[in-house]
Design a protein around this nucleic acid. Structure first.
Lengths: 407, 407
DNA sequence: CGAGTTACGGTAAGTCGTAAATTAACCCTT
DNA sequence: AAGGGTTAATTTACGACTTACCGTAACTCG
């Protein structure tokens, strides 16, 4: 089946990856801590750290006070050791961020793509412009190690026999034809990565956010549409063509309203931000055309005691709970993270109700084993997670071959 | 987070595991093939094979004809190198199999547990008796390396802080209270393992059956109830308390008939073997009390053109397709395997219809990427997969510490 | 029967990780 | 202010593994 990877060569690379990943996730630490956390010997950590310092990715930042004894020197990522670009291709436009290796935001640019039916060409132009602007604002660093895109829809990654990795985007919600990633953005000097936005959000939450240290969890992205990233055994599920996690068009009922995917009874048609607004409108209300605002208005009406709004919300909570319960039974997660603008709004006012509904539909054992929390990273999560695609590449592959300088 | 495992010590163990696993899965091979398949050097393979031969797990069985040159010696598992017991705790009774290391069945015993509401104590007695009988029939081998149980319901495996692994069974369908595994079967000399039966079936299908070489797939077990094993990235999903895969009580519709889990709209209530029979009965028919026979009768009636039966079946196909489509969207499998007595019956007559229904409810891309096939292993799969739990343990941990005989 | 061919096993070299010993850096006491 | 105590980090020594290379075994073909 798979290859073994158990060669002495790969040992060093794997240890480098483990140490670097730990450094990125935990900020400042010490050699001793690393050795303990990764159950490596101090000597190995010293060696790997030396490599990383030679690569310019880490440095010693200071020392901890000691009461007798050599003080522990603290280690950190060298922020300017590498830069990454993350882009969130969203409903209203493109958000581009430049991050340094410490994963701090160096610049951020939003570019409106006004028309709802923006095509690949327009997006491509906006993306090039936004990236140029963001890079400039970040001080035009030379060592940009990759660009990551968080896209709506299915992002298929197929590795052909000739090893050329092709990424194709099937953005149904944008009415795009299948589009190759390199048609949107491609530069010879910088590798480009892409994944579905919900999955990049899940990656970000798993690195720093509400899903940190969670080995089995799901991150739901409720915006106009619905997305999902599933973390199982510490890894993001990909599936055979990396389209795993398409939760929005799973069915919560036989029949039901027509969804724009062409099917009926899709979860997204009920409890996506768009679906909630539509259902409130059909119940006789007249909310803002802006769906995010509409949800705010709905929640305000509910808190005023408005009966119609309450019914629409209760129904939403019930259906969302049903959808989540299916995930609870199937995945047995320890945590469910609710993100996206709709998810955050709902979580801020009705988190407990959603959790109760979910538990009500779930089997008892798994129902008792998860908790439901709001996203911790917020709206920059999609772009941040997209940038992490490039970071993970750097973590896995040492770019600089270290030479023994002495002798 | 996790430890790294990247020590030189573990290298040998990992290579041993890889080679042994490959041997088990592929039957007879040669050193060269192993080296190629696992991308290990010939020397490494030679060393590992020498270890395995010293452990009594492998041996040279012959040689291939060569057209000039030293003939390739063929290697095989030594069947009597180890024995394993697998048990299928099913609806009507307990099936116990004894397997040798070549994973050939050496004996098989079925023990009726007539009453439907059999408790842990009765089951335990039946299990002890059946195992004793099966071991005797297999020639009472001394080197039995483990007993695996495929159980209905949730099998929770929790590793406590003191490393004592506790397995608890929540068999709702048997109306059991939470039961600790060691209360059912426990012998000091033989380790005991357990998992949900659908998951052990999935393991068996992944090793030899319809899911061999499938890295992302789902194996559905349709019997009286419904179970599922999800294979993702080559691994069986477990979840935080190893109850992942509980598909039977995911909801296919809001409301719907009451399920014996206490909830409404569960998939199992519609298209479990029991659910289908019940729905046919409610439509006015009078099938056998034996649900397996009832399904056969239903399918016969459909082939005769019986309108009521056809409606019940069409509905079943539709709902099963809907349930499967949710898995297709979520997991993006390359293959769906249909097993269990109900699954096999349905597959034998209506496989294409089920596939069509599933594709109809799924998103277009993932719909085009899976195929639907019947289980290849058949009814012994649950017990076989259960035995594999013990086999995997042997694969992972070399029991014999090899000593350098010379010097 | 000998030459050619192929597979396997052994040997030497290089690499990596661990453990132990050593050095480095600092505090505290006298 | 000097020396002992203490802890962190590095160096050294060693063992284990993989790899590359070479020799040998075993068989076929001419």
């Amino acid at each position: 089946m798979a290859t073994t990877d158990s060669t002495t060569r790969n040992l060093r690379r794997r240890n480098r990856s483990a140490v670097l990943r730990e450094l990125l996730r935990n900020g400042e630490t010490t050699r001793g801590q690393l050795a303990g956390a990764l159950s490596l010997s101090p000597a190995t950590v010293t060696n790997v750290i030396a490599d990383l310092m030679a690569e310019g990715l880490a440095h010693e930042t200071g020392s901890l006070p000691s009461d007798g004894g050599r003080p522990t020197t603290t280690l950190s990522i060298r922020p300017e050791g590498a830069f990454f670009i993350g882009a969130d291709v969203g409903e209203q436009g493109v958000t581009v961020e430049v991050l340094d290796l410490a994963l701090m935001q160096r610049s951020k640019v939003f570019r409106d793509v006004s028309s709802r039916s923006v095509g690949p060409t327009e997006l491509s132009e906006a993306l090039y412009a936004a990236i140029d602007e963001a890079v400039l604002a970040a001080g035009s660093p030379a060592n940009i190690y990759g660009v990551g895109l968080g896209m709506p829809g299915i992002v298929e990654s197929s590795t052909e026999l000739d090893e050329a990795r092709t990424i194709t985007i099937y953005a149904q919600s944008l009415n795009w034809p299948p589009t190759r990633l390199d048609a949107i953005y491609g530069r010879a000097d910088i590798p480009i990565f892409a994944d579905n936005g919900a999955k990049t959000l899940a990656t970000a939450e798993a690195w720093f956010g509400a899903a940190k240290d969670v080995t089995d969890g799901v991150v739901a992205l409720l915006g106009r549409g619905i997305g999902l990233g599933i973390i199982s055994d510490g890894r993001l599920l990909q599936g055979t063509a990396s389209s795993a996690g398409e939760w929005g068009h799973t069915k919560v009922t036989l029949g039901g309203p027509l969804c724009n995917c062409g099917s009926r009874g899709c979860l997204e048609a009920y409890v996506g931000g768009g679906g909630i607004a539509r259902r409130w409108r059909e119940a006789g209300a007249d909310p803002s055309a802006n769906e995010e605002l509409a949800l705010t208005e709905l929640l305000a009406a509910v808190s005023r005691g408005d009966a119609v709004a309450t019914r629409v919300l209760d129904e939403s909570v019930e259906i969302l709970g049903l959808g989540l319960s299916n995930l609870v039974n199937l995945m047995n997660p320890e945590r469910i993270v609710l993100g996206g603008w709709a998810g955050l709004q709902l979580a801020s006012t009705h988190l407990a109700e959603i959790a109760d509904a979910t538990r009500g539909f779930s089997l008892k054992r798994p129902a008792a084993q998860f908790d439901l929390v709001p996203s911790k990273i917020g709206r920059d999560g999609i772009a941040l997670g997209a940038a992490l695609l490039a970071v993970e590449k750097l973590v896995e592959t040492p770019l600089v071959k270290i030479l023994a300088a002495s002798e």
